[in-house]
Design a binder for these strands. Structure first.
Lengths: 236, 236
DNA sequence: GAGTGGTCTAGACCACCCC
DNA sequence: GGGTGGTCTAGACCACTCG
């Protein structure tokens, strides 16, 4: 771990532990330089991490202050944003996956466009229903070019595709572009999510990219609205 | 405008104009240093802006590459993320606001907690329905401590509260913490959003902060799902 | 091994806030 | 006017990729 991350973690711990309470001013950057024995630009890099997490604010001419947020929020924010699939975000819980479809097809024009391939190429066509300890959570519709993800087997689809991509194929996931919407469930979703009565779904349309800039996944996941919320922090 | 922003804009234009096409490698950082006549850390800062926008990827040992995204996405991503209220995001459109409620009340325990005030304090209690050229879009429920936003009048509520805060009160908005959910409309929402049939809403719960770290707004906005989607880019 | 971006330094000047 | 964080420099070394 590099210096600025260590320092960011240290300050973060001082906030979560209550050594720094909401509203209080942090040590000056110049003071932190001496305390940690690093240059000022490294301190700035560390504190900027906390700004992006939503834990502190910086004001030129004034100083750096702990944001006045609820205690519960502090805990959630202080967990570094992790970019992962469903399996990882539910780590520690018993995740069950039902594979509803696992085929290879030609992509629609829309999917081909999103994945920057042609309609003559082939993509995996995967539909999965996934549950955690609370019960059914989400139905995922996933399309991935077979050229980019060779050798995908049912056993990977039944557990974690992302684990296969990262651990077995040694490919690095760089980012995801997401669009969120509210939708009503289809009949298939009513069935697999065990929906009774009137319950909308939170839909997340996603294009995920490797660290070389190529898109490798187009997916639509539709989550039970009573079990999923999506949190985000916007700065500026 | 500072150097790294100018350089970021310049590179961004080269991407949107097609001078850099998806998948192509950008000039090396060392080359950019000479081209722009700045140090390498400034180039890095500039390119990092584009990484965060979702336009390019950087790989140590390889170089920097334009992300392979749809043309339409490039346009959307290249518009700098702006943090604004409803009025600003619909700039250029005819925004209509119907004020359904504009009162002063004590906050509930939940709202008091989010705004870090006590239940004995006072908050504005505002409900508005807002439309753009397409028709009704959103119903907003807003609570703001009267101490932080003195002098708020009906005329501001009818147009833009954010404009009043930033332009008149000269207060700076630093960030917002948001939680997104899918919900069904209430009767009030069915009426004001002119909903016919079965249409879910995209709910955005938001706590907004000043640049000194104090929360000044707790709001819930419920958007017609057929007219609103929420886009976001996650890196790493 | 050659070349890439990642991190870090020690110092400088600047824009802004508050007194 | 004194003090804050923001930007920028010129250079160094490191971790990683690829042929």
């Amino acid at each position: 771990m590099v210096k600025y991350q260590q320092i960011a973690n240290d300050i973060r711990n001082k906030i979560t532990s209550g050594e720094y309470v909401p509203g209080v001013q942090l040590a000056l950057e110049k003071e932190m330089c001496e305390y940690y024995g690093v240059s000022r630009i490294t301190i700035k890099r560390a504190v900027d991490e906390l700004v992006n997490l939503g834990l502190v604010v910086k004001r030129r001419g004034s100083g750096t202050f702990v944001k006045t947020v609820e205690n519960q929020d502090v805990k959630e924010l202080s967990m570094a944003k992790q970019f992962t699939g469903f399996t990882e975000t539910n780590r520690g819980q018993k995740v069950q996956t039902e594979v509803i479809r696992f085929d290879i097809v030609h992509p629609s024009q829309e999917v081909a466009s999103k994945l920057q391939i042609t309609e003559d190429d082939f993509v995996y066509d995967i539909i999965r229903a996934r549950s955690n300890d609370e019960g059914p959570i989400v139905v995922e519709y996933t399309k991935m070019p077979i050229q980019l993800i060779p050798g995908l087997k049912k056993e990977h689809v039944e557990t974690s595709i992302y684990a296969y991509i990262q651990d077995k194929l040694q490919l690095k996931i760089q980012s995801a572009h997401r669009t969120l919407r509210a939708v009503m469930p289809t009949e298939l979703e009513v069935k697999h999510l065990h929906i009774e009565g009137l319950l909308p779904l939170l839909e997340i349309e996603q294009v995920a990219f490797f660290d070389d800039g190529r898109p490798f996944e187009y997916s639509i996941s539709r989550h039970r609205a009573d079990r999923i919320a999506f949190k985000t922090v916007s700065i500026r």
